[in-house]
Nucleic acid binder design. Sequence first.
DNA 1: TGCATTATCCAAAGCCCTTTGAGCGGGTGT
DNA 2: ACACCCGCTCAAAGGGCTTTGGATAATGCA
Lengths: 355, 355
Amino acid sequence: MANLKQLSEKLGLSQTTISRALNGYPEVSEATRRRVIEAAREHDYEPNSSARRLATGKSRTIGHVVPISHHDMINPHFTDFIAGAGAVYNRRGYDMLISVVDSAQEAATYRALKRNGRVDGIIVHAPIVRDPRPAMLRKLGLPFVVHGRTLDDEASYAWVDVNNCRAFREATQHLIGLGHRRIALVNGLEHMAFAQRRREGYESALREAGIAVDGTLMSSDEMIEPAGYEAMRRFLALAEPPTAVLCASALSALGVMGAAREDNLLPGTGISIICYDDCLSFLDIGPDGMGLTVMRSAIREAGEHCASMLIDRIEGRQTAGRILLEAKLIEGRSTARCRPAPGRRAAHKAPATPG
Amino acid sequence: MANLKQLSEKLGLSQTTISRALNGYPEVSEATRRRVIEAAREHDYEPNSSARRLATGKSRTIGHVVPISHHDMINPHFTDFIAGAGAVYNRRGYDMLISVVDSAQEAATYRALKRNGRVDGIIVHAPIVRDPRPAMLRKLGLPFVVHGRTLDDEASYAWVDVNNCRAFREATQHLIGLGHRRIALVNGLEHMAFAQRRREGYESALREAGIAVDGTLMSSDEMIEPAGYEAMRRFLALAEPPTAVLCASALSALGVMGAAREDNLLPGTGISIICYDDCLSFLDIGPDGMGLTVMRSAIREAGEHCASMLIDRIEGRQTAGRILLEAKLIEGRSTARCRPAPGRRAAHKAPATPG
DNA sequence: TGCATTATCCAAAGCCCTTTGAGCGGGTGT
DNA sequence: ACACCCGCTCAAAGGGCTTTGGATAATGCA
């Protein structure tokens, strides 16, 4: 059974009644409703989605615009975020539209999505320090929720974020408490707002403890394995290398550990490592998995929150405009009391050795 | 400017003419077309997508149904596949619809997508050995392309796959050529067709070389880090552990190397490793990155092929019904000639030590 | 019994576009 | 001069749904 009309003829009811019965309106008797629902199931009828969209003016679709970086890379944390958001969309009857676009096209894509009504709302990913997107989307009149928040005007839009500043502050304090004073930070790209906040937390903890902030102990790059490796190589080549490292992502931690190992530094004995743990489903770095000490907050949950909040706003429901999640510090076996530096092995300049 | 009617009034032309001008039909003079296009840009007009879909009966949308496994996990290789497919969609004016559903809902989801016309076609992910989806989608009349192929009826539908059998055969032969005879396989889940083929390739190479296939040297699990770790622990606890390992994914390789390291086995010296490399953008395990010897075929390209092929079919264009990509063996520093087994260190039974 | 509700259901308008079938003026061929 | 075709444009008919504004029958109340 393809369409309403046919079903209405079969049932001897008007299209109106059927539509109402199916959509739960009260103007139809329960008996009729049951009859209609039964017939719909039997004849495998479901309203055509384009027609319904046209009639209602709602697309019941949420857009995610994913800019491809110069590396042709999609942020790997995206998968788990999507898993969370997607589950909510599914539950609440929304579709997820993903636009993979060149970074330069991002603004144009939002405009297009609005112009031709393909989406009811947008999730904004990876906000940078001063991000033009919130203002732009507001002007477009497209509902949106930001995953993360910008540094300048966080009060002016809805967001879901982790308290990154606090997380990195506490992690740093934890290391300081263990006696470490040479603490390195392998950060994400610092034009990203969250990375900025993480550094802020890290630096404030150092300052509080009277430890000078040392630029050579900080790196900022894509949060992927190779970047972590390179950063750690650099740290280890310093005259006075760090005894502890703070890592912004499980992926970079892999690289960091790889580089450390080349100098025979094992986490927990040779070097202390704390890593931010998004609970990537394909990589368990925490105590139950690879055993690292982590600051943990599941990115999948952030995805769920973003999706719920956005749908609530689209449907005009009341909602908290912002959610600040707290990461939890979970001790693993990668952190230990700082020991006086042993005789160091020379840092190889040779290319990476596997393992 | 919101809609066609308004624009037509403004221009003093009929809606027909404007529609045709914008859609490139020949019945409209070039002068008029230019005028219309100019006006459309100026007034920021673009046809409403729902209306257009309704009128044409096409959604210009491709669906990806992503079942969430029991681990609440989305296959991490998905990200890069999506990056490839998404770029093609974008270029050719299609939308990407992603449905994150419980595995049990998958079939129902396809039916629903078809029933209410939300998609013009489907990409089928991760086919299992005998997969009901091709037959089902064919019956539904929903165009589709399979990423990979089933074992039973690969001739009956369109697919894009890697020659997994050949890849693993060659990799195994390579190791045999280096003198290895105890070669382990850390495979993906073997109800997946591709994993089955990989094992086939591996076993056939062994048999050809007169090496007995040993079930204790094979594992089959999710292709993620923890699974690789566990598998390798098991291998290393054997009376006669492997001297070489074949790995189905970069993620499992991480786990494998982690476990190996705990026994002081380093890739290339203590143990030989060849890993299948999908070119995950966030993890470069190949010679230029972590240095492993790999069989390489970019999953992103598979995504591009799938997307192109599907769109071609939807639009009635002629197309090769199947594409078999060949993985390339690239030597890194993780493979070496087999040396007589040294005195082995005891395999710890303790829980994983980080590093 | 009579009037006002209430409970059900319906016809038709509207959402915005594409596409069919036609019309109209001007140029061509003969 | 006639018929014919071509190039350009248009009115109108869908496409399948939701929703407005009634209509009709059944019920409540006096």
